[in-house]
Write a protein that binds this DNA or RNA. Structure first.
Lengths: 217, 217, 217, 217
DNA sequence: CATGAATGAGAGTTCATTCAT
DNA sequence: AATGAATGAACTCTCATTCAT
């Protein structure tokens, strides 16, 4: 009768699925789903090809797991935002965008948008899941913040539904760039400067014209 | 000496390559390069599999041709913009962004950015070519316009290098969306409204505080 | 109504089949039947691929024609030998072997044995035809000559059936070499010296012990 | 750390490459390289098509392995000959020729010369390798033996370089025949009788005229 | 007659998936 | 649990063959 696995081993075993999805995420982002061979995934995770099938039924199941795993932190990040939710819409937007970059865009998870975009056509139900659970929730957060700003008279009366996408698009674009062209055509853009410039630009664009300094009230 | 083929046949022969790259573009954008079978490309173009090889040496060569063909209109559009170049930087940016959407983003060519982004890792030299010929040139145009606005005191002193990307990113994002999630998770965004909102937002964000309309001089 | 073709054209037309089989022979010998593309044959003959099918029903038919054409000179050479048939078996063998080399082995036709040997397994009925029409007749000639030498007491009483093959084998071997290894591993063998040495060797080997020159009668 | 595979499995794995090259040799010799389908090779070896690629990178690599494997016994046979090397050149030649037939020509390996000759044009570097490692070494052995016979006054002063080829050519020819025409046009030649007749013929041809028995000294 | 664009069956090669060990 | 040899369906690519011009 085999003894209970040692703690080290148990931990290893329980960590396996994530080690595998981590390896898969990196490769799926780099080469795309179809062009990634399971051999490579296994090799990168330091296991044999057959082992993958102990944890995932198929390549497609692995893909779904990768997305599901990648989605959780996004949701958690979003919920954290709600918790910190300041009343000040400007601060809220700043926090949201900066946090998204810090916790998602600039990390390994920053490849998820590219991957999901690339494969949406091949995995519509995964795309739908991702849309509902991540995109729409994120947009709702942004919309709420913008609406609040409008209500408070801080922001111009823009269409909050459109603005949500406009606020996140440049960050996703940067994440996509880092996971595509950056490897071959590194432009010298400093991510943080880019994020700052974006936040600065859109907040300026949203704000109602403040009275000019020195202008008559 | 062989007789020249009749006009009908000749015309067919000359039109073939584009018919094939058109079909390939659509499928590459929809499913990705690796997941697209040449059978499908041929079928979509109404020819047999073997015919593809009369015009392209390999699947990879077809990919390169697709990109090369897709790049030409982008360059031409850019040059057209220069020709129309108004002195007014605001008008110039409006025209540039709107034209990009009208002539590239909203057309079949709007799939090129997604495709190129998805495959940059697998075709670095094509990505490099695309970056040099399309991206950097486009950014240069935008940078110039922004710089001119700054020089004229119309725009705030932002970093033109960063702003270029920020100006185009939301349009690319929209094009990407239309070529990925739109098929399964159509959000109700009206493209023109989105483009308008974007232009409005960034121009407001760029402008130095204009005197409020109706405000006392 | 088309005018009668001019003589030049007519001659061209009638010569076509042979131009085609000549091209085919060279390539079949060089690369083998399966590895030779009809494109190449056509190009070498200076016609288009389709033209081949005006003269031959299929690649296989072309192969058969190549062999049939290559066989005729061998038969004619054999018949010429019979006509010149000296009574002296030694002279007869000399003439036969030297003529075979001059008229067959050293010419383009020298590739036929290699080709036929390589393809015998794939075209057994052609091989059978070749065996009957060329090999067996040639061997019969040799056998007859050898038998005559034995009958005349000039040759030792060897088995004529075996000796026939032994007499021609080295010449075929040389022809094969020239159509295979010679291109990449040219050995410095002088063909005529080789033929001479062979004739010298086998005639010496066949002869009954002649009185030593200068020996007392 | 993975457990070592059991002996049965390991033995299979180690034996595979040779099983595959054996199957390939037989088919390459029978039909030629280009006309042999990998399906057939796999089927003959009792494996699936894909398994071939676990052991050989490509059809061409399989070809090279077939030759390399086929070459080893030839070299070993040659070395064995050197070991047995009698001082008597006549015996040496007898042994060499007979052994070549017994150990090479009459076995599966007897197809190698035909195969190599047929494919020399398509694989020049393999042909070069084969020439250096097998042909030239074999010829050197024969040349040495003949030269020794000449030096001892046993053989006539022939050109040893030419004679080497002349000695082996009829045996190669017989091997070639058995791997080509024999299947369709079996002539009734008894191989051993042929080998004997050849050895008898050439040794007689080489020898200086012995004094006739009973002839006056 | 001659052409060469077009075809599609077939071959080489890849790789997700299985399973005996 | 883990392995990796084996599989075979599927894909890219080739080329003998056809046929409209």
């Amino acid at each position: 009768m085999p003894a209970e696995p040692t703690t080290a081993r148990r931990r290893r075993k329980e960590a396996r699925p994530q080690e595998l999805t981590d390896a898969a995420l990196a490769l799926f982002v780099e080469k795309g789903f179809a062009a990634t061979r399971l051999d490579e995934v296994a090799a990168r995770a330091g296991v044999s090809k057959g082992t993958l099938y102990l944890y995932f039924d198929s390549k497609e199941a692995l893909f779904k797991a990768v997305i599901r795993e990648g989605v959780v932190p996004a949701i958690e990040a979003g919920e954290a935002m709600l918790a910190e939710q300041a009343d000040d819409p400007v601060t809220l937007l700043r926090i949201f965008l900066q946090s998204w970059w810090d916790r998602i865009g600039s990390t390994e998870l920053g490849g998820i948008p590219k991957l999901m975009m690339s494969e949406a056509g091949n995995f519509p139900e995964v795309a739908r899941y991702y849309d509902e659970v991540v995109i729409q929730r994120g947009l709702a957060l942004l919309r709420t913040a913008v609406q609040r700003g409008i209500d408070q008279g801080i922001f111009r009366p823009v269409d909050p539904a459109l603005i949500g996408t406009l606020l996140i698009a440049p960050l996703i674009h940067l994440a996509n760039w880092r996971n595509s062209f950056a490897a071959c055509c590194g432009n010298g853009i400093d991510p943080q400067a880019y994020v700052d410039a974006h936040i600065d630009l859109v907040l300026n664009g949203l704000r109602v014209q403040p009275s000019l300094p020195g202008a008559p009230q």
